[in-house]
Amino acid sequence: MFIEINHINKQFLNKENQPVDILKDINLLIDKGEFISILGPSGCGKSTLLNIVAGLTKATEGEIYVNDTKVTKPGKDRGMVFQQAALFPWLNVIENVTFPLKKEMSKKEAIETAKKYLQMVQLGKYTDHYPHELSGGMQQRVAIARALAMNPETLLMDEPFGALDEQTRSRLHTQLETIWTETKKTILFVTHSISESIKLSDRIIVMGTKPGIILQDIKVDIPRPREEHKQEMIELEDYIMSFLKKEIDKVVSEELAV
């Protein structure tokens, strides 16, 4: 297995310094080149899980192996696109994208690589703009270009398209799919959009909340390009929707009971 997530538990301390279970017994095996969506309601621990895989947060228990190496710290083999764009405001667009390339290639190569990925996200004309001059969606596209330019084997994406309008999002879906088929990257894609997860992924991991657990691991067998199979997409969406509704109803009734 390319990525092995074994018995991950994560607790955070609440305001009274009591440990609270955020993630409970998360197990997941991911093949090289798979496109995995992690789907779940707000606050279920999706970002936390992704941060643990990235090596930015330590799990309370359990371990993760990527390419047979135990994850103990962040590394360039796992590129991350954060929920907020996380660009450096003191650098312009091209300097942001070349940030991770400084050590491994000449300046000229780095700039060429960066330009290639900026064109891919349709920002080729904005190389010398500063982040504060860009809209939120444009900033997020720069962040995606930055992660891609580093050419990591694994791409961790935390709701990267959440802030975008429908058209831009749809175009970026197509581009991401193309990049994924061309580069054979393994992608962990966090979202709370059911249709987005169906459109993009090989497998959908549905998470429940309080504590965050894996409820279902759904294989998406619809052939690509999926736009040509609207009917099957809608059926799957209905299925996941009704399943999640039960889950949300459960949470709501539990909250009311307390």
């Binding site: 941060n51 990235a54 090596g55 930015l56 710290k73 962040p74 590394g75 360039k76 796992r78 590129g79 991350m80 954060f82 907020q84 996380a86 450096f88 940030f99 991770p100 050590k103 930055r146 580093m150």
Partner: peptide, 12 residues
């Protein structure tokens, strides 16, 4: 912390 985390995932 977001800047630091982003930089760390880029090998800095």
């Amino acid at each position: 912390p977001l800047y630091i985390q982003a930089a760390q995932t880029m090998g800095s």
